[in-house]
Design a protein around this nucleic acid. Sequence first.
DNA 1: CCGAAAATGAAAGACGTCTATCAGATATGA
DNA 2: TCATATCTGATAGACGTCTTTCATTTTCGG
Lengths: 354, 354
Amino acid sequence: MKRAPTLVDVATRAGVSYATVDRVVNGRGSVAEKSRASVLQAVADLGYIRNVAAANLAQRRIYRFCFIIPEGTNAFFDRVCDIVRAMHPSAGTDPVQLVIERVAAFDPAALAACLTALAERPFDGVALVGLSDAGVDDAIGALRDKGVAVLTMISDMPTPARDAYVGIDNVTAGRTAGALIVLSHGGRAGRVLPIVGALSARDHADRLSGLRETLAPTDLTFAPLIEGLDRHEVVEARLRAALAADRSITAIYSAGAGNAGLIRVVAEMSEAGRRPIVMIHELTPRSRAALEDGLIDVIIDQRPEDEVAGTLTLLRCLADRRPLPQLPQIVPAIYLRENLPAAVDPALLKGSAA
Amino acid sequence: MKRAPTLVDVATRAGVSYATVDRVVNGRGSVAEKSRASVLQAVADLGYIRNVAAANLAQRRIYRFCFIIPEGTNAFFDRVCDIVRAMHPSAGTDPVQLVIERVAAFDPAALAACLTALAERPFDGVALVGLSDAGVDDAIGALRDKGVAVLTMISDMPTPARDAYVGIDNVTAGRTAGALIVLSHGGRAGRVLPIVGALSARDHADRLSGLRETLAPTDLTFAPLIEGLDRHEVVEARLRAALAADRSITAIYSAGAGNAGLIRVVAEMSEAGRRPIVMIHELTPRSRAALEDGLIDVIIDQRPEDEVAGTLTLLRCLADRRPLPQLPQIVPAIYLRENLPAAVDPALLKGSAA
DNA sequence: CCGAAAATGAAAGACGTCTATCAGATATGA
DNA sequence: TCATATCTGATAGACGTCTTTCATTTTCGG
């Protein structure tokens, strides 16, 4: 168990001075091509890896990261904010400073403006919920050109735009929902009503296509899709209309938000004696209550705790210019009445980065 | 944004020298009670927290942790080993050395002996799969008296014995299985055959009680419990006998290991035309294949990646004598045919401690 | 071959903590 | 009051990296 190689070892091996090694690895000053090559060779030979702790100590480095979270009447994103806030103390051992910015949901212009403004501030990394938009792409590009790491969470964007994506596979999530719906029908026929916020939201669209894929070979049919804009009044009104128009619906799958409206409608049906199977996404105080009260049957939760923790891990790697580890895949949790975890006071939550 | 307080600041505030502060916080030499008090007061006033990176740098510290993993014909524990091994590089930024010891499964004497032997080696922490046994308790106590952190994973032990537990709530896992069985029966009657490795294994017993609890208020009845000792031949033989004796079984729930035997039996039934609903635990190459082949219906996986990562996080905290963070609860993943994640080459896996 | 530019080496001080040593101060008991 | 013990302060060198300065060497164009 020999000591890990240091920059001094690299210098010796390369036959140059420490100063030259430093110029190479930290890219400053001018170095002859020959020297640069021999230093890099020595680094490779020795398997040198920078001691990040020592480096951070010397520079009194603070990691500054920004989370851009959609703003709106969306309990899920409030939860994400709570989790990010709870991560502060979790830094514990290392100096991370987290800032949350909230921008209007589904508003590419606002998001792009936010990103542009961020470029003026000294951030090492930015995490945002992906949105497909050329302006956003450009703003991200500008940030990354400045050396700021940018990654998407929850909903992805085209690969080249961001450094990484942390989140669930939404097609698979939709398939999961489909499989559970199939399971709950036990081979009998049925009719499924899908609800999304907007088909332009990639995560919603992905879930829907996963659902379709899974139900295609079965006896289950689809009622016309509802777009609820993630707003509970809209969801409520359109759902009510759809149910009135079609009495044969046996299952409802809501891939987006605005489920308060859905729950109101289902509560009425439930009192009236019969309600369809209901599956929705994201654990929130309201969805939890509905599950406990028997108004809905399944909650598929994307585990934002894991997503935020993974995001932080990757942001740190990117900031250190280290290779990105392959994080364990984030698998959505399936909550039924019987396996709801005890409610956790978010103020007490302290996540783990790693 | 002012600089975090250092020991020099503490010394100044307490009106003593750095040397005295050092004596207090690192508990060496002798210090007058008055000095100790004023130092501690200063620490509290300033909210001093030791800079672990600097401390580790100065001591050239290496964290040495040992994972004790049950040995046997158990693919799940092989997977755990792979994950632990894959964590090595994940250390990445910090100097962690991991050692794996394997001991015979379900053998308290062997486990206790292993723990005792470990006390002679310079470990900072040990993780083991809990086993209820007085000898094991004593061995753990001896280790902890030496200052070694000890925590249980996967299966717990009585609280006072270990420093922490990382793993799923097995009662809830059993309830989950029960709920899915109920769902899949869609209100029809049925008969459930439970299989465990041994009732003396706490995780198995917990799962069974969760299952019983959930099925109690339903129309579903229980066939007599099978104890399969986690060995596939035993499981196969006893299952065959049970199925021959009782043709009315509509679901099988296996809470333990040895599922290769179960799969063989189910494969035959499947070919013969009809098989019951089958739910088992843990994602392994074999169980994955069985799910893909339509021989079983659900795999409940306890996500050992998360368990190992969480274990490492806590071991580090314990080694640093830092307060333990509240890790996000580990929720078992429910895998159906439709949401099986892509198989990951374990050699490529690099986990996140965070 | 000379002058300017480019490349290199040597060194020192910082970051916050650990560890060690040694001299001096205060307290304790006889 | 003296001889011990018990405390305390001052200081210095590590750990591995960053950052800067200054002097020296090499290279190259003209």
